[in-house]
């Protein structure tokens, strides 16, 4: 087992967001949402907002391992959701269940490196922590017709009895994929791929046209 120990010690962790003084460009930077928000209507059926430059961390480990679970609780301040399709949130930290051995943790961008480092220092056994912040972004759809826009894009049943607040699903979304979480009665968070973000931004504008799209920045 000594090999395993050595490998753990030499894991290289790269700080993807060096510090707050460097301007980061989110996947929807080119869309200039701030200008659109200033110009556009203030009322409508759907509101769109990019939660730009959050820290996204993928964690893979064994949920049956009590020691690993207690390390996670120590690092994040909140226990991992082990029930399928659920999420937990504590302040700015949201942990989404992705698969029986995989979770997606979102934190404010500048905390990602600290949390990743804390995992590498404290975690034991067989596990994986990867900072995937650069590969995806989080957008929120809210308002009375937010669910109608998602209904057009995904086969997921969004009725409150099937999809309560806090539920998370990974599914197809407009020929791409998204991790959809209901964060409020009328608020949904979508974690989408960076490479599909422009396509989905165009898609969402088109799909929300009939309800009136409000862009928030």
């Amino acid at each position: 087992m000594s090999d395993v120990k050595n490998e753990t010690a030499t894991v290289s962790v790269m700080n993807q967001l060096p510090d707050a003084s460097i301007v980061g460009q989110s996947p929807l930077f080119h869309a200039d949402l701030a200008t659109i928000a200033k110009k556009g209507p203030n009322t409508g059926g759907v509101s769109f907002k990019e939660e730009a430059l959050l820290g996204h961390i993928t964690l893979r480990m064994n949920a049956d391992n009590a020691e690993q679970m207690s390390v996670v609780e120590k690092v994040l301040g909140v226990a991992l959701p082990t029930q399928p399709l659920t999420s937990v949130s504590q302040g700015d930290v949201v942990v989404r269940w992705i698969s029986p051995d995989e979770w997606l943790i979102t934190v404010p961008g500048l905390q990602a490196f600290d949390i990743e480092t804390a995992f590498q220092q404290n975690m034991i056994g067989h596990y994986q922590v990867v900072n995937v912040s650069g590969g995806q972004t989080l957008v929120t759809l809210s308002g009375k017709h937010a669910k109608d826009v998602i209904k057009k894009s995904s086969p997921i049943d969004l009725h409150p009895s099937e999809f309560p607040v806090g539920k998370v699903v990974t599914s197809v979304f407009a020929k791409s994929s998204a991790v959809i979480r209901r964060s409020g009665e009328e608020t949904f968070e979508l974690v989408i791929r960076r490479s599909f973000s422009d396509y989905l931004w165009l898609w969402i504008q088109d799909a929300s046209r009939e309800y009136g799209l409000v862009v928030e920045a």
């Binding site: 399928p84 399709l85 698969s99 029986p100 086969p155 699903v169 599914s171 197809v172």
Partner: peptide
């Protein structure tokens, strides 16, 4: 059986 619910075949 891992998600514990029915999903569309597309997935």
């Amino acid at each position: 059986p891992h998600c514990g619910e029915h999903r569309e075949e597309e997935e």
